[in-house]
């Protein structure tokens, strides 16, 4: 099996150039598969750093919200004063990418939120948590993603959400089983699946490009 834990192969890491070449991109490091996203971002040419505090958030040009448990990430973001700064940065146009729990965090609405579960929001969509079922129903399947060249990505869906409904400003980049599972709205990107677990860094390359383009 491929894991993302071994770091980029020699020659694929970003050259030691100025910030324009390797944008500083954070991974929200409250809980979840932070290390895999840091590895994938580095392989995609970003300078990847963990973010747990408001001052660390202020120092990045883009942010990944990782897979994890969305209720836990939401509660910790609230408890440590990150929720409002996150909302402000997203409103101000900071590029952000969320996988799985991160997709839930970037949704304006959750269909079945737990009490006190708040999101950062930004993408005009309604998501259903654990939509594909419990862990026994978790699966892998090939998913064609618009804007990602070179064939389908390996979609790893783990107790994954899907998008129940999508606003006019948001675009579905991929569907599975009739439901959007990859979405983009402006500088915000979200996938129900986990590219960070596959060793295929094309989705992270797309996001790193979005960060570069946002300047």
């Amino acid at each position: 099996m491929t894991t993302a834990a071994t770091g980029p192969a020699p020659g694929t890491a970003a050259p030691a150039a100025g910030p324009a070449a390797a944008p500083r991109v954070g991974v929200l490091a409250l809980q979840g598969d932070v290390r895999e996203h840091l590895t994938a971002l580095a392989a995609a040419g970003a300078q990847a750093v963990p973010v747990r505090r408001p001052e660390e958030l202020a120092a990045v040009r883009g942010l990944v919200i990782p897979g994890g448990e969305s209720t836990t990430i939401s509660k910790l973001a609230h408890a440590f004063g990150l929720l409002e700064p996150l909302r402000e940065r997203v409103r101000a146009g900071m590029p952000a990418y969320g996988s799985c729990a991160g997709m839930i965090m970037l949704a304006d609405k959750i269909l079945d939120p737990r009490s006190g579960q708040e999101t950062v929001g930004g993408i005009d969509m309604l998501v259903r948590r654990n939509a594909f079922g419990r862990q026994n129903e978790s699966f892998e399947a090939a998913v064609e993603v618009a804007g990602v060249a070179g064939g389908p990505v390996e979609g790893v869906f783990i107790r994954a959400p899907w998008v129940e409904s999508l606003g006019a400003a948001a675009e579905a980049l991929a569907e599975y089983d009739g439901h959007p599972v990859a979405v983009r709205q402006g500088n915000l990107l979200a996938t129900a699946f986990h590219p960070e677990l596959t060793g295929d860094h094309r989705v992270h390359a797309l996001f790193t490009e979005m960060v570069r383009a946002a300047g």
Binding site: A29, L30, Q31, G32, D33, V34, R35, E36, G67, G68, E69, T72, C100, A101, Q135, S138, V156, I158, R159, H194, L197
Partner: peptide
């Protein structure tokens, strides 16, 4: 991968 999602928790 499921266990990876539990990390830090």
């Amino acid at each position: 991968g499921m266990a990876e999602q539990l990390k830090g928790g």
